[in-house]
Design a protein around this nucleic acid. Structure first.
Lengths: 189, 189
DNA sequence: CCTCCATGTATCTTGCGGATATATATCTAG
DNA sequence: CTAGATATATATCCGCAAGATACATGGAGG
């Protein structure tokens, strides 16, 4: 079987929150699920049109003054049903590509300093992510705690927290190992 | 700028270990970097041909008896150079799609039991991965420890260990939260 | 004044994933 | 003993994904 189109369901999911234009969807993704999902216009616009054809969404053309007209899409009952079916369906795991690990795997072909540089950049990114997740957690435990979706947001944030913390630990462990190798190489020259 | 072709470099990397056929490459990936990289024949065969055209690899047709003939590819000096340039090049981060988090994000539209089911399947997978990584660590700390690439393998395995351990912690934490929500819902009915 | 940025819709190219086709030999189970 | 599964080996097709780019307009800032 061919790969199933997950973008469809991500878009349906966003439309289940509120009616939106294609442009809105992109912004909404960045402001909500942007840490673990992304969609480009290349998916969004064709899929929105197809959702209408399939009766999973409706579209309304809204003329605007001063700005380009917008086409606002809303989910239908059939769309909600399809979405819920997909949400329930089990997730089949796939190997996700990890460029850092691939480069490290062939790391013997580089100087330890080059590998350390990769690790350092990765560590900084994880540090930054961790800070973001901590801010998000503060939001969702505080001012947003009463919203009905807050518990689910908390789960996604918790995933990020555990993940980035683990990555930082791994970075430190691996940096030590690489620095040891580096000093061994220097001494042997 | 268009997306850069990473498959090229993964394949060059494998050829840097030893000359191989397309078929070998696929098997080799499964046996080495399979936990964080995958390639299908749809990439492998066209890329191998192109590597030859670009002078990054050479090909030798080997007739065999009883089996189909094989075409064995070997990396050239130019290929090694290209590979090393790529290995050194900094990694640009991209959001990787996470279907589990997407489904959990819209989790309010499901019964807690459905979310728990997703979590349970994910936990089992992580548990299994952790066991695999622990076996690999035992290999690389023991019988394979003397190989020159062993330190780099250890780093990749360490990544997997930290990651799956963190995921298990998150699963347990999140399961508790979902079960609480579940019992609250039951009591309110 | 000119450039950048925001709003908004739309498409093109390249890359990736996985299924499938083809052909032969060996291994396994009924 | 034979039918079906598995291994060897190369090759292509299709749909999904990423992101660059095109087009049009108006406001903000150097």
């Amino acid at each position: 079987m061919a790969r199933e189109n997950k973008s469809r369901f991500a878009i349906l999911g966003l439309l289940s929150l509120q009616p939106m234009s294609g442009y809105d969807i992109r912004k909404k993704i960045a402001a909500s699920i942007g840490h673990f999902w992304s969609e480009g216009y290349g998916q969004i616009y064709p899929i929105l049109k197809q959702l209408v054809v399939e009766g999973l969404a409706t579209s309304v053309h809204e003329p605007q003054t001063g700005k380009p007209d917008r086409v606002v899409y809303a989910i239908t009952q059939a769309g909600s049903d399809e979405l819920r079916i997909w949400l329930k369906a089990p997730i089949e795991a796939a190997v996700e590509r990890n460029e850092l690990l691939l480069k490290l795997f062939f790391g013997r072909q580089l100087a330890p300093a080059d590998n350390l540089a990769h690790l350092h950049r990765f560590r900084e990114r994880q540090q930054q992510l961790l800070a973001e997740f901590e801010m998000l957690r503060a939001q969702v435990e505080g001012p947003l705690a009463h919203l009905p979706d807050a518990p689910y947001w908390r789960m996604a944030i918790g995933y990020g927290l555990h993940s980035s913390e683990a990555m930082l630990r791994w970075c430190d462990e691996t940096t030590v190992a690489l620095k040891k190798m580096q000093s061994l190489q220097e001494n042997s020259m």
